[in-house]
Design a protein around this nucleic acid. Structure first.
Lengths: 187, 187
DNA sequence: ATTGGCATGTAAGAAGTTACATGATTAC
DNA sequence: GTAATCATGTAACTTCTTACATGCCAAT
Protein backbone atom coordinates (compact mmCIF):
# COMPACT_ATOMS: atom_id res chain seq x y z
CA UNK A 1 0.00 0.00 0.00
CA UNK A 2 1.54 3.24 -1.16
CA UNK A 3 0.89 6.77 0.09
CA UNK A 4 -0.13 8.42 -3.16
CA UNK A 5 -3.74 9.39 -3.68
CA UNK A 6 -5.49 7.08 -1.27
CA UNK A 7 -8.62 8.98 -0.26
CA UNK A 8 -9.47 6.63 2.59
CA UNK A 9 -6.51 8.10 4.46
CA UNK A 10 -8.22 11.46 4.66
CA UNK A 11 -11.62 10.05 5.42
CA UNK A 12 -10.09 8.22 8.38
CA UNK A 13 -8.07 11.20 9.58
CA UNK A 14 -11.21 13.29 9.30
CA UNK A 15 -13.33 10.90 11.35
CA UNK A 16 -10.65 10.81 14.03
CA UNK A 17 -11.05 14.58 14.50
CA UNK A 18 -14.49 13.78 15.90
CA UNK A 19 -13.28 11.21 18.42
CA UNK A 20 -10.73 8.43 18.84
CA UNK A 21 -12.11 5.33 17.14
CA UNK A 22 -11.34 1.72 16.35
CA UNK A 23 -11.43 0.24 12.86
CA UNK A 24 -14.82 -1.15 13.68
CA UNK A 25 -16.09 2.25 14.82
CA UNK A 26 -14.82 3.89 11.67
CA UNK A 27 -16.73 1.48 9.49
CA UNK A 28 -19.90 1.96 11.53
CA UNK A 29 -19.54 5.70 11.38
CA UNK A 30 -19.29 5.76 7.59
CA UNK A 31 -22.31 3.48 7.36
CA UNK A 32 -24.40 5.58 9.66
CA UNK A 33 -23.41 9.12 8.81
CA UNK A 34 -21.59 9.20 5.49
CA UNK A 35 -23.15 6.44 3.44
CA UNK A 36 -24.75 8.84 0.97
CA UNK A 37 -21.39 10.07 -0.23
CA UNK A 38 -18.71 7.75 1.13
CA UNK A 39 -17.98 4.15 2.03
CA UNK A 40 -15.16 2.21 3.59
CA UNK A 41 -14.57 -1.43 4.22
CA UNK A 42 -12.56 -3.38 6.74
CA UNK A 43 -10.09 -4.81 4.28
CA UNK A 44 -9.04 -1.27 3.53
CA UNK A 45 -9.45 0.35 6.95
CA UNK A 46 -7.23 -1.98 8.96
CA UNK A 47 -4.16 -1.82 6.73
CA UNK A 48 -4.62 1.93 6.31
CA UNK A 49 -4.69 2.45 10.08
CA UNK A 50 -1.41 0.55 10.41
CA UNK A 51 0.08 2.63 7.65
CA UNK A 52 -1.09 5.86 9.28
CA UNK A 53 0.40 4.75 12.58
CA UNK A 54 3.75 4.04 10.95
CA UNK A 55 3.69 7.51 9.51
CA UNK A 56 2.98 8.97 12.93
CA UNK A 57 -0.34 10.47 11.90
CA UNK A 58 -2.27 8.45 14.47
CA UNK A 59 -1.40 6.59 17.68
CA UNK A 60 -3.12 3.47 18.95
CA UNK A 61 -3.97 2.33 22.44
CA UNK A 62 -5.39 -0.98 23.50
CA UNK A 63 -8.60 -1.24 25.45
CA UNK A 64 -9.09 -4.58 27.21
CA UNK A 65 -12.59 -6.00 27.21
CA UNK A 66 -14.08 -9.03 28.95
CA UNK A 67 -14.99 -11.88 26.64
CA UNK A 68 -14.41 -9.78 23.55
CA UNK A 69 -11.46 -8.96 21.36
CA UNK A 70 -9.52 -5.92 22.52
CA UNK A 71 -10.43 -2.64 20.94
CA UNK A 72 -7.58 -0.83 19.23
CA UNK A 73 -8.40 2.79 19.67
CA UNK A 74 -6.73 5.21 17.29
CA UNK A 75 -6.16 8.84 18.15
CA UNK A 76 -5.16 11.63 15.79
CA UNK A 77 -1.75 13.20 16.37
CA UNK A 78 -0.83 16.80 15.64
CA UNK A 79 0.98 15.58 12.53
CA UNK A 80 -2.16 13.77 11.50
CA UNK A 81 -4.22 16.90 11.91
CA UNK A 82 -1.69 18.87 9.89
CA UNK A 83 -1.79 16.30 7.11
CA UNK A 84 -5.58 16.45 7.05
CA UNK A 85 -5.49 20.24 6.85
CA UNK A 86 -2.97 20.10 4.04
CA UNK A 87 -5.33 17.94 2.05
CA UNK A 88 -8.37 20.07 2.89
CA UNK A 89 -6.55 23.09 1.52
CA UNK A 90 -5.73 21.42 -1.77
CA UNK A 91 -8.01 22.19 -4.70
CA UNK A 92 -10.22 19.26 -5.57
CA UNK A 93 -10.21 17.96 -9.12
CA UNK A 94 -13.68 17.55 -10.48
CA UNK A 95 -14.04 13.85 -11.09
CA UNK A 96 -17.10 12.82 -13.03
CA UNK A 97 -17.08 9.05 -13.24
CA UNK A 98 -20.15 7.95 -11.34
CA UNK A 99 -20.93 4.73 -13.18
CA UNK A 100 -24.64 4.11 -12.97
CA UNK A 101 -25.72 0.63 -13.93
CA UNK A 102 -29.40 1.48 -13.88
CA UNK A 103 -28.87 4.18 -16.46
CA UNK A 104 -26.71 1.88 -18.54
CA UNK A 105 -29.64 -0.48 -18.77
CA UNK A 106 -32.01 2.36 -19.58
CA UNK A 107 -29.67 3.49 -22.36
CA UNK A 108 -29.87 0.13 -24.11
CA UNK A 109 -33.43 -0.69 -23.15
CA UNK A 110 -34.57 -0.85 -26.79
CA UNK A 111 -33.16 -4.38 -26.79
CA UNK A 112 -35.76 -5.57 -24.33
CA UNK A 113 -39.57 -5.40 -23.87
CA UNK A 114 -40.97 -2.21 -22.37
CA UNK A 115 -42.54 -4.12 -19.47
CA UNK A 116 -39.11 -5.23 -18.25
CA UNK A 117 -37.85 -1.66 -18.20
CA UNK A 118 -40.89 -0.43 -16.30
CA UNK A 119 -40.42 -3.20 -13.74
CA UNK A 120 -36.78 -2.28 -13.28
CA UNK A 121 -37.65 1.38 -12.86
CA UNK A 122 -40.18 0.54 -10.16
CA UNK A 123 -37.52 -1.45 -8.37
CA UNK A 124 -35.15 1.46 -8.54
CA UNK A 125 -37.79 3.86 -7.29
CA UNK A 126 -38.38 1.61 -4.32
CA UNK A 127 -34.70 1.60 -3.43
CA UNK A 128 -34.44 5.37 -3.85
CA UNK A 129 -37.48 5.89 -1.68
CA UNK A 130 -35.92 3.83 1.10
CA UNK A 131 -32.63 5.64 0.86
CA UNK A 132 -34.34 9.02 0.95
CA UNK A 133 -36.45 8.05 3.94
CA UNK A 134 -33.43 7.01 5.95
CA UNK A 135 -31.67 10.23 4.97
CA UNK A 136 -34.65 12.23 6.15
CA UNK A 137 -34.55 10.38 9.45
CA UNK A 138 -30.88 11.23 9.79
CA UNK A 139 -31.68 14.85 9.02
CA UNK A 140 -34.39 15.02 11.66
CA UNK A 141 -32.04 13.56 14.26
CA UNK A 142 -29.26 15.93 13.30
CA UNK A 143 -31.55 18.95 13.43
CA UNK A 144 -32.77 18.02 16.88
CA UNK A 145 -29.21 17.70 18.10
CA UNK A 146 -28.37 21.06 16.58
CA UNK A 147 -31.31 22.72 18.36
CA UNK A 148 -30.55 21.12 21.72
CA UNK A 149 -27.07 22.54 21.72
CA UNK A 150 -27.71 25.96 23.14
CA UNK A 151 -24.35 27.20 21.98
CA UNK A 152 -24.84 28.71 18.51
CA UNK A 153 -22.90 26.65 16.05
CA UNK A 154 -20.55 28.51 13.79
CA UNK A 155 -20.58 26.22 10.81
CA UNK A 156 -23.13 23.59 10.07
CA UNK A 157 -20.97 21.68 7.59
CA UNK A 158 -22.37 18.25 8.36
CA UNK A 159 -25.91 19.51 7.86
CA UNK A 160 -24.92 21.09 4.57
CA UNK A 161 -23.46 17.79 3.40
CA UNK A 162 -26.65 16.04 4.44
CA UNK A 163 -28.61 18.59 2.50
CA UNK A 164 -26.67 17.57 -0.59
CA UNK A 165 -27.79 14.00 -0.08
CA UNK A 166 -31.38 15.14 0.29
CA UNK A 167 -31.26 17.29 -2.84
CA UNK A 168 -29.83 14.44 -4.87
CA UNK A 169 -32.15 11.84 -3.45
CA UNK A 170 -35.20 13.97 -4.19
CA UNK A 171 -34.04 14.81 -7.69
CA UNK A 172 -33.48 11.16 -8.45
CA UNK A 173 -36.89 10.25 -7.16
CA UNK A 174 -38.56 13.01 -9.17
CA UNK A 175 -36.85 11.82 -12.33
CA UNK A 176 -37.74 8.24 -11.55
CA UNK A 177 -41.40 9.05 -11.14
CA UNK A 178 -41.53 11.23 -14.24
CA UNK A 179 -39.86 8.49 -16.20
CA UNK A 180 -42.15 5.73 -14.99
CA UNK A 181 -45.13 7.89 -15.94
CA UNK A 182 -43.70 8.50 -19.41
CA UNK A 183 -42.96 4.83 -19.95
CA UNK A 184 -46.42 3.83 -18.83
CA UNK A 185 -47.87 6.27 -21.33
CA UNK A 186 -46.06 4.67 -24.25
CA UNK A 187 -47.94 2.45 -26.72
CA UNK B 1 -9.37 -11.15 -16.95
CA UNK B 2 -12.31 -13.17 -15.75
CA UNK B 3 -15.91 -13.08 -16.93
CA UNK B 4 -17.64 -12.46 -13.60
CA UNK B 5 -19.24 -9.09 -13.03
CA UNK B 6 -17.34 -6.92 -15.42
CA UNK B 7 -19.78 -4.15 -16.35
CA UNK B 8 -17.70 -2.86 -19.22
CA UNK B 9 -18.64 -6.01 -21.13
CA UNK B 10 -22.25 -4.93 -21.23
CA UNK B 11 -21.50 -1.32 -21.98
CA UNK B 12 -19.47 -2.46 -24.99
CA UNK B 13 -22.05 -4.98 -26.17
CA UNK B 14 -24.67 -2.26 -25.83
CA UNK B 15 -22.76 0.27 -27.87
CA UNK B 16 -22.22 -2.32 -30.59
CA UNK B 17 -26.01 -2.60 -30.99
CA UNK B 18 -25.87 0.94 -32.37
CA UNK B 19 -23.17 0.25 -34.95
CA UNK B 20 -19.99 -1.75 -35.44
CA UNK B 21 -17.17 0.15 -33.79
CA UNK B 22 -13.46 0.04 -33.06
CA UNK B 23 -11.94 0.37 -29.60
CA UNK B 24 -11.22 3.96 -30.40
CA UNK B 25 -14.80 4.59 -31.46
CA UNK B 26 -16.13 3.01 -28.30
CA UNK B 27 -14.06 5.32 -26.14
CA UNK B 28 -15.14 8.37 -28.12
CA UNK B 29 -18.75 7.33 -27.91
CA UNK B 30 -18.70 7.03 -24.12
CA UNK B 31 -16.99 10.40 -23.88
CA UNK B 32 -19.49 12.11 -26.11
CA UNK B 33 -22.77 10.49 -25.22
CA UNK B 34 -22.45 8.65 -21.94
CA UNK B 35 -19.99 10.67 -19.89
CA UNK B 36 -22.61 11.77 -17.38
CA UNK B 37 -23.17 8.21 -16.20
CA UNK B 38 -20.45 6.02 -17.64
CA UNK B 39 -16.80 5.97 -18.61
CA UNK B 40 -14.40 3.56 -20.24
CA UNK B 41 -10.72 3.68 -20.93
CA UNK B 42 -8.48 2.08 -23.52
CA UNK B 43 -6.58 -0.10 -21.09
CA UNK B 44 -9.85 -1.83 -20.33
CA UNK B 45 -11.59 -1.68 -23.69
CA UNK B 46 -8.95 -3.41 -25.79
CA UNK B 47 -8.50 -6.49 -23.58
CA UNK B 48 -12.26 -6.73 -23.10
CA UNK B 49 -12.87 -6.70 -26.85
CA UNK B 50 -10.40 -9.58 -27.27
CA UNK B 51 -12.14 -11.46 -24.51
CA UNK B 52 -15.55 -10.88 -26.06
CA UNK B 53 -14.27 -12.12 -29.40
CA UNK B 54 -12.92 -15.30 -27.83
CA UNK B 55 -16.33 -15.88 -26.34
CA UNK B 56 -17.96 -15.41 -29.73
CA UNK B 57 -20.01 -12.41 -28.62
CA UNK B 58 -18.39 -10.11 -31.19
CA UNK B 59 -16.47 -10.61 -34.45
CA UNK B 60 -13.75 -8.34 -35.74
CA UNK B 61 -12.87 -7.26 -39.24
CA UNK B 62 -9.90 -5.24 -40.35
CA UNK B 63 -10.31 -2.01 -42.24
CA UNK B 64 -7.19 -0.93 -44.09
CA UNK B 65 -6.41 2.77 -44.07
CA UNK B 66 -3.76 4.80 -45.91
CA UNK B 67 -1.04 6.14 -43.66
CA UNK B 68 -2.91 5.21 -40.52
CA UNK B 69 -3.11 2.14 -38.37
CA UNK B 70 -5.79 -0.31 -39.43
CA UNK B 71 -9.14 -0.01 -37.75
CA UNK B 72 -10.34 -3.17 -36.03
CA UNK B 73 -14.07 -3.03 -36.41
CA UNK B 74 -16.09 -5.12 -33.99
CA UNK B 75 -19.57 -6.33 -34.80
CA UNK B 76 -22.09 -7.84 -32.41
CA UNK B 77 -23.02 -11.48 -33.03
CA UNK B 78 -26.38 -13.05 -32.25
CA UNK B 79 -24.81 -14.62 -29.18
CA UNK B 80 -23.56 -11.23 -28.14
CA UNK B 81 -27.03 -9.75 -28.46
CA UNK B 82 -28.46 -12.64 -26.47
CA UNK B 83 -25.91 -12.10 -23.70
CA UNK B 84 -26.73 -8.39 -23.59
CA UNK B 85 -30.44 -9.18 -23.34
CA UNK B 86 -29.79 -11.67 -20.58
CA UNK B 87 -28.06 -8.96 -18.59
CA UNK B 88 -30.72 -6.35 -19.35
CA UNK B 89 -33.34 -8.71 -17.97
CA UNK B 90 -31.49 -9.26 -14.72
CA UNK B 91 -32.61 -7.20 -11.76
CA UNK B 92 -30.10 -4.49 -10.90
CA UNK B 93 -28.75 -4.34 -7.38
CA UNK B 94 -28.94 -0.87 -5.98
CA UNK B 95 -25.37 0.14 -5.43
CA UNK B 96 -24.87 3.35 -3.50
CA UNK B 97 -21.14 3.96 -3.29
CA UNK B 98 -20.63 7.22 -5.14
CA UNK B 99 -17.58 8.54 -3.33
CA UNK B 100 -17.67 12.28 -3.49
CA UNK B 101 -14.43 13.97 -2.55
CA UNK B 102 -15.94 17.45 -2.53
CA UNK B 103 -18.45 16.38 0.09
CA UNK B 104 -15.76 14.63 2.10
CA UNK B 105 -13.96 17.95 2.36
CA UNK B 106 -17.18 19.74 3.25
CA UNK B 107 -17.82 17.21 5.98
CA UNK B 108 -14.52 17.97 7.69
CA UNK B 109 -14.38 21.64 6.80
CA UNK B 110 -14.37 22.72 10.45
CA UNK B 111 -10.63 21.98 10.38
CA UNK B 112 -9.99 24.81 7.96
CA UNK B 113 -10.85 28.52 7.56
CA UNK B 114 -14.25 29.36 6.12
CA UNK B 115 -12.72 31.28 3.22
CA UNK B 116 -11.03 28.12 1.92
CA UNK B 117 -14.30 26.25 1.91
CA UNK B 118 -16.09 29.03 0.07
CA UNK B 119 -13.33 29.12 -2.53
CA UNK B 120 -13.58 25.38 -3.04
CA UNK B 121 -17.34 25.57 -3.39
CA UNK B 122 -17.04 28.27 -6.06
CA UNK B 123 -14.64 26.05 -7.94
CA UNK B 124 -17.03 23.17 -7.76
CA UNK B 125 -19.93 25.36 -8.92
CA UNK B 126 -17.87 26.39 -11.93
CA UNK B 127 -17.20 22.77 -12.88
CA UNK B 128 -20.85 21.83 -12.39
CA UNK B 129 -21.96 24.76 -14.49
CA UNK B 130 -19.71 23.64 -17.34
CA UNK B 131 -20.90 20.09 -17.14
CA UNK B 132 -24.51 21.16 -17.15
CA UNK B 133 -24.00 23.46 -20.12
CA UNK B 134 -22.47 20.70 -22.21
CA UNK B 135 -25.30 18.36 -21.21
CA UNK B 136 -27.83 20.95 -22.29
CA UNK B 137 -26.06 21.23 -25.63
CA UNK B 138 -26.24 17.49 -26.02
CA UNK B 139 -29.92 17.60 -25.19
CA UNK B 140 -30.64 20.28 -27.78
CA UNK B 141 -28.82 18.27 -30.44
CA UNK B 142 -30.63 15.10 -29.49
CA UNK B 143 -34.02 16.80 -29.52
CA UNK B 144 -33.40 18.24 -32.96
CA UNK B 145 -32.48 14.80 -34.27
CA UNK B 146 -35.60 13.35 -32.69
CA UNK B 147 -37.79 15.98 -34.37
CA UNK B 148 -36.19 15.56 -37.77
CA UNK B 149 -37.01 11.91 -37.82
CA UNK B 150 -40.55 11.99 -39.13
CA UNK B 151 -41.17 8.43 -38.02
CA UNK B 152 -42.58 8.58 -34.51
CA UNK B 153 -40.13 6.97 -32.15
CA UNK B 154 -41.42 4.22 -29.97
CA UNK B 155 -39.12 4.63 -27.02
CA UNK B 156 -36.97 7.60 -26.25
CA UNK B 157 -34.67 5.79 -23.84
CA UNK B 158 -31.58 7.81 -24.64
CA UNK B 159 -33.44 11.06 -24.05
CA UNK B 160 -34.74 9.75 -20.76
CA UNK B 161 -31.22 8.89 -19.68
CA UNK B 162 -30.09 12.37 -20.67
CA UNK B 163 -32.92 13.82 -18.69
CA UNK B 164 -31.52 12.03 -15.63
CA UNK B 165 -28.22 13.78 -16.18
CA UNK B 166 -29.99 17.13 -16.46
CA UNK B 167 -32.02 16.56 -13.30
CA UNK B 168 -28.93 15.63 -11.33
CA UNK B 169 -26.82 18.41 -12.76
CA UNK B 170 -29.44 21.02 -11.93
CA UNK B 171 -29.99 19.67 -8.44
CA UNK B 172 -26.28 19.76 -7.75
CA UNK B 173 -26.04 23.31 -8.98
CA UNK B 174 -29.01 24.42 -6.91
CA UNK B 175 -27.47 22.90 -3.80
CA UNK B 176 -24.12 24.43 -4.62
CA UNK B 177 -25.60 27.90 -4.94
CA UNK B 178 -27.71 27.59 -1.82
CA UNK B 179 -24.68 26.41 0.08
CA UNK B 180 -22.40 29.17 -1.12
CA UNK B 181 -25.05 31.71 -0.09
CA UNK B 182 -25.32 30.15 3.35
CA UNK B 183 -21.58 30.07 3.84
CA UNK B 184 -21.24 33.68 2.75
CA UNK B 185 -23.87 34.62 5.32
CA UNK B 186 -21.91 33.07 8.18
CA UNK B 187 -20.04 35.28 10.70
C1' DA C 1 7.33 23.68 -34.80
C1' DT C 2 3.84 21.88 -32.13
C1' DT C 3 -0.56 20.57 -30.70
C1' DG C 4 -4.43 17.55 -31.46
C1' DG C 5 -6.62 13.80 -33.63
C1' DC C 6 -6.39 9.10 -35.37
C1' DA C 7 -5.33 4.33 -33.87
C1' DT C 8 -3.79 0.15 -31.02
C1' DG C 9 -1.93 -1.75 -27.48
C1' DT C 10 0.89 -3.31 -22.74
C1' DA C 11 2.88 -3.11 -17.91
C1' DA C 12 2.57 -1.89 -13.56
C1' DG C 13 0.41 -0.36 -9.88
C1' DA C 14 -3.45 1.51 -7.10
C1' DA C 15 -7.90 0.89 -5.33
C1' DG C 16 -11.58 -1.68 -3.87
C1' DT C 17 -14.38 -6.11 -3.03
C1' DT C 18 -15.35 -10.81 -1.48
C1' DA C 19 -14.57 -14.52 0.98
C1' DC C 20 -12.51 -16.51 4.72
C1' DA C 21 -11.10 -17.22 9.70
C1' DT C 22 -12.24 -16.77 14.69
C1' DG C 23 -15.16 -16.51 18.71
C1' DA C 24 -17.89 -14.56 22.60
C1' DT C 25 -22.36 -12.09 23.79
C1' DT C 26 -26.95 -10.57 23.44
C1' DA C 27 -31.51 -10.33 21.77
C1' DC C 28 -35.55 -12.65 19.65
C1' DG D 1 -31.47 -22.28 18.20
C1' DT D 2 -30.44 -18.63 15.23
C1' DA D 3 -29.38 -14.27 13.93
C1' DA D 4 -27.14 -9.98 14.95
C1' DT D 5 -23.57 -7.34 17.05
C1' DC D 6 -19.00 -6.80 18.67
C1' DA D 7 -14.16 -7.05 17.03
C1' DT D 8 -9.83 -7.78 14.13
C1' DG D 9 -7.60 -9.23 10.53
C1' DT D 10 -5.67 -11.64 5.78
C1' DA D 11 -5.57 -13.62 0.96
C1' DA D 12 -7.04 -13.58 -3.31
C1' DC D 13 -9.07 -11.38 -6.64
C1' DT D 14 -11.25 -7.93 -9.67
C1' DT D 15 -11.44 -3.59 -11.36
C1' DC D 16 -9.61 0.64 -12.83
C1' DT D 17 -5.99 4.18 -13.76
C1' DT D 18 -1.55 5.99 -15.24
C1' DA D 19 2.18 5.85 -17.79
C1' DC D 20 4.46 4.20 -21.57
C1' DA D 21 5.31 2.92 -26.61
C1' DT D 22 4.59 3.96 -31.60
C1' DG D 23 3.73 6.81 -35.65
C1' DC D 24 1.32 9.37 -39.37
C1' DC D 25 -1.70 13.39 -40.72
C1' DA D 26 -3.92 17.89 -40.46
C1' DA D 27 -4.34 22.18 -38.77
C1' DT D 28 -2.51 26.47 -36.40
Amino acid sequence: MKRSENKSRYAILGMLTIAPMSGYDLKKFTEKSMNYFWNENYAWIYPTLKQLEQEGLVVSSQEKQEGRPDRHLYTLTEQGRAELRRWLNEPTVFHETPRNEHLLKMFFADQVPLSITIEQMRFWREALQNMLTSLEDLDRQASVVALEQKVPQGRPYRLLALSYGLHMGRAQLVWCEETIAKLEGLP
